[in-house]
Design a protein around this nucleic acid. Sequence first.
RNA 1: GGUCCGGUAGCUCAGUUGAAUAGAGCAACUGCCUUCUAAGCAGUAGGUCAUUGGUUUGAAUCCAAUCCGGAUCACCA
Length: 591
Amino acid sequence: MLLQNTIKLILEEVVKNTLNLPITKDELVIQRTKAEFEGDYTLVLFGLVKKYKLKPDEIGEQIGTTACQQHASIFKSFNLLKGFLNFSLQDQCLLDFLENTYPNADFGKAFPHTKRVMVEYSSPNTNKPLHLGHLRNIFLGWSIAELLKERGYDVTKSCVVNDRGIHICKSMIAWQLFANGATPASTGQKGDHFVGDYYVKFNDAHKAQVEEGLAAGLSKEQAEREAPIMKATQQLLQDWEAGKKEVLELWNRMNQWVYTGFEETYTKIGADFDKTYYESQTYLLGKQFVEQGLANGTFYKKDDGSIWIDLTEEGLDEKLVLRKDGTSVYITQDLGLAEQKFQEYKYEQSIYVIADEQNYHMKVLQLILQKLNKPYATGIYHLSYGMVELPSGKMKSREGTVVDADDLIAEMIQVASAKTEELGKVKDFSSEELDKLYQTLALGALKFYLLRVDPKKKMIFNPQESIDFQGFTGPFIQYTYARIQSILRKETPAASLPMQKHLEKEERDLLISLEQFPAVLDQAVTEHNPSVVALYVFTIAKLFNTFYTQHSIMNAGTAEIRQLRLRLAMLTATVIKKSMSLLGIEVPGRM
RNA sequence: GGUCCGGUAGCUCAGUUGAAUAGAGCAACUGCCUUCUAAGCAGUAGGUCAUUGGUUUGAAUCCAAUCCGGAUCACCA
């Protein structure tokens, strides 16, 4: 059991008995002792003092004395300071933890259970390549899925591809008009970028035609709608829905180009999915809900035939669920897809990694499912994350400020390579090993940079800062790991050899933090927040580096001390490696 | 206008079930490589926690009002 929990249970017992009070453990505030005071864990007495009108000095003395007497194997000593009861732990209980844990490469892994969770993330459109915003989504979704797995959940990663609709038709029209039969193969371009370029060409052509229309005296709205290229696009959409063969063929062909491109990027960044849904196959789902909703009075029909739900009592608005022409809208499709996912996977929780601009939409989705008495409604969880902005403001495709994912990664690899060469520590690496290292460092920097911030908050992507390799960064932590490996290559701990029974300050600080690893993972899972892990692994790396510069491992004073430190180093490496891998980041043996 | 989210050091962020002198990283400045990787370590400097009022033994954290920024409220997705 975790030390902090053990301590809490013990102190609960001690407080109950010594003070003869009906304490529950929720009333006890236990925290790490602040660095400037002596001790490891602190019981904050103010709550007790207030509730039971006691004197902090008296009860502190009683609790401290009793705890140390009755649980001498855990508590070494205590001190009392203005309502804070600070306990120092016995070295031995920390050493026991180290001894039991260092050989376990699975430290942190919980027993599997049967709770099933779906995590939907990425969910791109097929009309343009992935950009920085997608990367935050993908890294987040992937990491939260892995964290859930680590803590024993049965996880299915899913992706919904928005592969149909007017936006796809725009790229198709532009290709028909301007491509002269060009393909990604004939131009040597990555498929998603290739198609994205035609989407841009559509917009350029459309814009020009709108200006002509305006010049001819049309209103802006008219000009936009009546532009020939737009009308052709509308026609294409109708033909698509009618199942016209040539249209479907072109649609398929262009989407395949995009998928090939996406696949390449996904492989590079290590994203994977167990199940992919295509909107073209699911957009008709959900109409069944309309019947159900009308039947039980949740929905109502307006005179023009459109169907709505009234959510004003819940503080929201009226929401359309079926157009007057009988076609479904986005929310209707989502209702259908939620049902299909549930039928297929019987999930207890279904996590949607979607930007916070859709908070309202997701609220409505859950509310409608509740009103339709769907058992899985409560399991819907919107992992809402803030948009990624640039120091200059929001990314705008119209202004060409969108940061392309592939370009960004290539740039990071460049920087990683330049820095590595500059330091010249791996001159003996083969070019394959170098490429691998550059990629590990580049993606480590990028992923850590995007994951270290609380997902809920919007974040500023500063290109200069993101390629930083010092301080609170992925490479700093990777470097710490490589340092440890360099020692472990020389010597690994030997279980048969005894280790030192006393801990230096830097050793205990590190050990106490290492012990919290499983609790940190639980926190990350409950909060759906990988940044908790990023923050944690950074403090571990810092604690290790502080220890490392003050105490030699290989040249420790005695063989016992060396054994202790080798074990400590090994456990630190395990925790770093696991933390990073849960963030999707690899760690190099050398760098 | 309604609803929701945010405002902490020059910059980027932790800390928000109330608790000790509000913490990191970057940038600035000062030291430390004949000793396990200096992509490191140690230190200095930097704060009216948006503002005002309230609750409390105790408030960045809770409440109210105000100011500023953002999202959303489509027969778009």
